[in-house]
Computed example of a mutant assay.
Amino acid sequence: MMLRLIRYLSVIFILIGVLIVFFYTPFYSDMVMRILNGVVPVEVNQVAAESQQMGALSENDDLEPGSALWIARQAYLKVMEEAIRTQNSHDLVELHARYQVLQQEIKRETEQNKIKKPDTTKVPFLIHPKDQQAHSEPNIASGHIEDLLVGQSKENSALMQKYIKFLKTHPVELKEQTAIDDEIYKDIAYVNTRNNAKNAGEVRKDVFNTQEQPNAIVVLGGGLTLDKNRKDIIINEYTRLRLEKTLEVEKETHLPIVLSGVEAPYMQAWLAQRGIDAKLLENKSMNTCENTRFSSLLLQKQGGAPKVFLVTDRYHMPRTRRLFALNGIETLAVEAPMPTPLTTWQPSQQNYDHSRRANYELLASLRDMLFGSSGCREVP
């Protein structure tokens, strides 16, 4: 009996030893990635996707998604598209004048009903590259998110129709010599950009080989750390490698860049030092779920981005793509390298670092798909 027990224990110890050795090989992390890419769904939620196709992406708008001013702007762009077809400059000037009146009315009403909200901004976090894990706690997109996005609730749809009627019929007085000002030219270009994206039959083929041109490049922060002087805060190796990959994508596509995470201001400074002006910052998210949710809201606020290039590491990619899909955005994966490469076959510590990341993302993805998760705010 004792001999049989010793044999069983020996077999168990041998299996554990083999498994540990397997963790230190490049084959384990590759196996996990095949599992993740096979089981994690990335089909876009079509209801949420409608909210990403209401306007043209802009790097300069600063309107809260779902707000009356944002709905008014989308109504204005819709009516302007109709007015452009008439090729009548007087119609455009009249429309712009009505839009200005509508904005004033909305601001006046908003001031009367304004409710102050406490600032929940958190300070940036510090993560050493060796201890870096992908942001945690993603959450399955709930039904509340669609109501927040313009055009998804009955109230917002009704408000949109009300504003369209106002922009078409509200009486305004114009001088005979009134000309189209710079703002109208910008808005015309805004509408034309959207129409070109929708109607283009063929898009320039580049190294990314996509049939439908994405609208932006979204880069997820990988953490911050301390500089060598132990005083200054800088981006860590995970974030740096993602930004280096972003430079390659931007060079090929010249698309707007969205920087996501509390690391965003530091990422923006890093890119600025290399001649890239990234204007779209989402700097409130503290985990992957908030990365995807807040970035989606930012893109929707800027006019919509149904498809984006997504830059993060290979292990983080499946879970992140799924969460963006739940928020209505299709993603094209652009994998950034890890700080340490895999060896060809022999066991090593750097292979184990990859295995840890793979295990983390495997467990996090399964948890999210089966149970969802907490700690993900609905709005920034």
Rank of each mutant, 00 (worst) to 15 (best):
R7S: 14
Y8Q: 04
F13Q: 10
F13V: 08
I14T: 12
L15E: 08
L15R: 07
G17Y: 12
Y24E: 06
Y24F: 15
Y24T: 12
D30A: 05
D30F: 09
M31S: 06
M31E: 04
L36P: 00
N37C: 13
V39G: 07
P41G: 03
Q46L: 15
E50S: 14
S51K: 15
Q52H: 11
S58H: 14
L69D: 08
I71L: 05
I71N: 05
E81F: 06
E81M: 10
I84M: 13
Q87I: 03
L92V: 15
A97Y: 04
N113F: 03
I115V: 10
T120G: 03
V123S: 13
L126M: 13
I127C: 04
H128D: 02
P129R: 10
K130L: 15
Q132G: 01
S136R: 01
S136G: 15
P138N: 10
D147L: 13
V150Y: 11
K154Q: 08
M160E: 04
Q161F: 03
Q161T: 08
F166Q: 09
K168G: 03
Q177I: 12
T178Q: 14
A179E: 14
D182E: 10
Y185V: 13
A189D: 12
T193P: 00
R204M: 14
G222I: 00
R230T: 14
T246W: 10
T253M: 04
H254F: 03
I257E: 06
E263V: 00
Q273V: 10
Q273D: 15
D277A: 09
A278G: 04
L281D: 11
R293Y: 01
F294A: 09
F294H: 12
S295P: 03
S296Y: 05
L297V: 08
L297S: 05
L298I: 11
K301H: 09
V308L: 05
F309I: 06
L310R: 03
M317W: 00
R322Q: 06
F324C: 05
A325S: 12
L332K: 07
M338A: 05
T340V: 15
T340E: 15
P341T: 06
P341Y: 03
L342D: 02
Q346V: 14
Q350L: 11
Q350M: 13
N359V: 08
S374L: 06
S374E: 01
G375D: 02
V379P: 03
